[in-house]
């Protein structure tokens, strides 16, 4: 009989790990709390740096994990530690006995309404990166006028690098996402004036810097180094955005028709709850704590419990996929070692 491996989370990390574990001859069981697979990526439109449709990536991953047992709309009710395995009761009444648990629980997007000064949910023309991707997918959003915005802006680091929001970490993907989305908006609305308000531009990944240069040179996107301090609405219902142009050393003010808040990656509160069931430690950044942040990022300090993807911190799609494969191999090696 094939060995059961319980994967918590049916996002891209869970799917890719399942595909690899199937190939290695195991029986992965994916438990997904929502009604769809692919997690956040499934709700995205296109992915940097090659503008790959997110849908293609997700459907390939779902096809790869096709043989796995998948439970949607299902959570973990409780976990009993047996002598050398875990008895896991799922919210659908099924119980699973397994020696291996893989956390692929992902992240949640920072709730942009918490940054009250930006007026998300208060001013009509303020949206998040997620809302914009949804609009790319559906074309439905009252905040975006048909003729497009005359002037619009992207606010980097919303809820990231922000001690007051209790997220001192960098969310890693927002800089490049903002540049990607700015280019996409400029492609749709060539006459729009587009600003990016940034503190640093962290263009660490493959072709990211090319993207940035292209945004500057080919698309004329204006980059202003300074964090937006305050947003308000004028009598015409347009947004008044204030920041400091730190390169000029002067305050700057601009009126806009649309403002996109780059909500960051924060630890998923459900992850912490589930991690609590098996007493997993949480790192100082609020994400799950690995056995070692350099050499054993996919291993928890507990026997038989592994991690993949953003449950241990912000990651890009390729990083998450690489980690999922690495976790699958680590699990395989662990099981081999038990025999």
């Amino acid at each position: 009989m094939k060995e059961n491996i319980l994967i918590i989370g049916g996002g891209i990390a869970g799917l890719e790990a399942a595909a690899q574990l199937l190939k290695l001859g195991y029986n992965p069981i994916i438990v997904e709390k929502s009604d769809h697979l692919g997690g956040h990526v499934a709700e995205w439109n296109r992915l940097f740096p090659d503008m790959t449709p997110a849908e293609d990536v997700v459907s390939r991953l779902i096809a790869g994990a096709g043989e796995a047992n998948i439970f949607l709309n299902t959570g973990i009710s409780f976990v009993n530690r047996l002598k050398d395995s875990y008895n896991i009761m799922l919210s659908n009444g099924i119980s699973v006995i397994t020696r291996i648990l893989l956390f692929a629980t992902g992240f949640t997007l920072f709730d942009a309404a918490k940054k009250e000064e930006y007026g998300y949910g208060v001013y009509n023309q303020v949206m998040t990166n997620m809302d914009l991707e949804r609009w790319f997918n559906t074309g439905n959003d009252e905040r975006i006028p048909e003729e497009g915005p005359k002037t619009m802006g992207f606010v980097h680091c919303v809820g990231s690098r922000d001690e007051k929001a209790r997220n001192p970490q960098c969310s890693k993907v927002c800089c490049i996402t903002a540049v990607k989305q700015a280019i996409e908006m400029k492609q749709k609305f060539p006459d729009a004036m587009i600003y990016c308000f940034y503190m640093d531009l962290r263009m660490f990944g493959k072709k990211y810097e090319d993207f940035y240069i292209s945004a500057q040179r080919d698309y004329g996107i204006r980059f202003i180094r300074g964090r937006v301090s305050e947003v308000s609405e004028n009598i015409e219902g347009r947004l008044v955005v204030k920041a400091e142009d730190t390169l000029s050393g002067k305050p700057v003010k601009v009126t806009m028709d649309l403002l996109v808040l780059m909500a960051g990656i924060v630890c998923n509160p459900d992850t912490c709850r589930t991690a609590g069931l098996v007493s997993l430690p949480v790192d100082s950044d609020g994400f799950l704590k690995s056995r070692d942040n350099i050499a054993d990022i996919t291993e928890s300090p507990k026997e038989g419990i592994f991690y993949a993807g953003t449950c241990t911190g912000p990651k890009t799609v390729p990083e998450t996929l690489a980690e999922a494969r690495s976790a699958a191999l680590a699990i395989h090696n662990y099981i081999q070692g038990l025999k």
């Binding site: 500057q216 040179r217 204030k242 700057v252 003010k253 601009v254």
Partner: peptide, 26 residues
Amino acid sequence: AINLDNADLSLYDELCKAEPDICKCM
């Protein structure tokens, strides 16, 4: 404060056409 709504960028836009690399300054 710099009010970007009133900034006259017509000459700058012309300059960008002649010298597109100016936009690449970081």
